[in-house]
């Protein structure tokens, strides 16, 4: 009986489906190849950067200033500048993004035109090229707010009307806003309806419910969003090209009105405008390695937290 069905099956295969079978295998093979290519390229990039960067990569490299016209020494100020940038950026973007996400999940009704406009804006923010944020930072923060502030309060003396770390961070916070909004929104949606109803049925108001039940339940989502935003902000260069990043500074920024060095910008400068590109190659690779470790590990943490939230929601 069994062998008989097998024979029938194989005869069917050999007569009818042989062609389609080969074709099918070919097609699946091609799609597999695409996946393989992407993953291979990813690991090749990673491998080469690790390989070329390992020589220079050390604690000393991370913790010392560049010396000798940036052809020797470390990247300490660039690292610190990047840290300050992402911290100020998070301070601006996280509350803003979280509140917007709360609006979208808790307050916005489905039919509301306003909510649809907010959603569309957030999605647009996510696709606006990063260089446009740079232009906006220059036109709005520096020329409009900064210079306006200087003429109004500093007697025209230039202090805020020029590129600095504050304007760069704020510019970056606009860029990373959608990242936070999306993460928090996702987390808020995993809070079960039953919990909201329980709170409301006890006579809690909407805001009390959000404050006491919804927000505590989405802390990890807010964290994921923040980490992803930091990872993004640490790696973006275009928005800070002309809003505050500096080529070289002998000291760390002392106030928000100072310029700063930045890892990504450092890589760009060293690779394209260094006085001796060949000689500084190991430094460039090591800097790239540091930036990559920073962004990838942050991303990994975010992915882990996020998958935990998702599992919990199930």
């Amino acid at each position: 009986m069994n062998t008989a069905t097998k024979e029938i099956n194989s005869s069917l295969l050999s007569t009818q489906n042989k062609n389609t079978d080969i074709k099918g295998k070919l097609i699946v093979g091609v799609t597999q190849l695409a996946v393989f290519t992407i993953i291979a390229v990813l690991f090749i990039i990673l491998g080469i950067i690790v390989y070329e960067g390992r020589e220079k990569f050390s604690w000393e490299f991370i913790s010392s200033f560049p010396t000798n016209g940036m052809t020797e020494g470390g990247i300490f100020p660039a690292l610190i500048g990047t840290f300050i940038l992402v911290i100020v950026m998070s301070i601006a973007a996280v509350p803003f993004g979280t509140i917007t996400a709360i609006y979208l999940t808790e307050y916005a009704s489905e039919s509301s035109k306003f909510a649809a406009a907010v959603r569309f804006s957030v999605r647009t923010l996510a696709v606006v090229p990063s260089i446009i944020f740079g232009l906006f930072g220059l036109g709005f923060f520096i020329q409009f707010i900064g210079a306006g502030f200087d003429t109004a309060f500093n007697g025209g003396q230039l202090r805020w009307g020029q590129p600095n770390i504050l304007w760069a961070s704020l510019t970056m916070s606009l860029l990373t806003l959608p990242v936070i909004i999306v993460s928090v929104e996702e987390a808020l949606k995993t809070i079960p309806r039953e919990l909201r109803e329980a709170s409301l049925a006890l006579g809690a108001t909407k805001w009390q419910t959000i404050k006491n039940v919804v927000l505590p339940g989405s802390i990890s989502g807010i964290m994921t969003g923040t980490i992803l935003a930091v990872s993004r902000g640490a790696g973006e260069v275009a928005p800070i090209l002309f809003t505050g990043a500096a080529y070289y500074l002998a000291s760390l920024p002392g106030s928000l009105s100072d310029q700063f060095m930045n890892l990504g910008y450092h890589i760009y400068i060293m690779a394209t405008q260094s006085s001796d590109v060949e000689k500084t190659m190991p430094i460039q690779f090591a800097t790239t390695l540091v930036l990559l470790i920073l962004t990838l590990s942050l991303n990994l943490v975010a992915v882990v937290i996020r998958s935990r939230i998702r599992r919990k929601a199930k």
Binding site: V237, A238, Y268, L291, T295
Partner: peptide, 8 residues
């Protein structure tokens, strides 16, 4: 791959 900064 999306986490790779474009400068990298």
């Amino acid at each position: 791959l999306a986490a790779f900064p474009s400068v990298v």
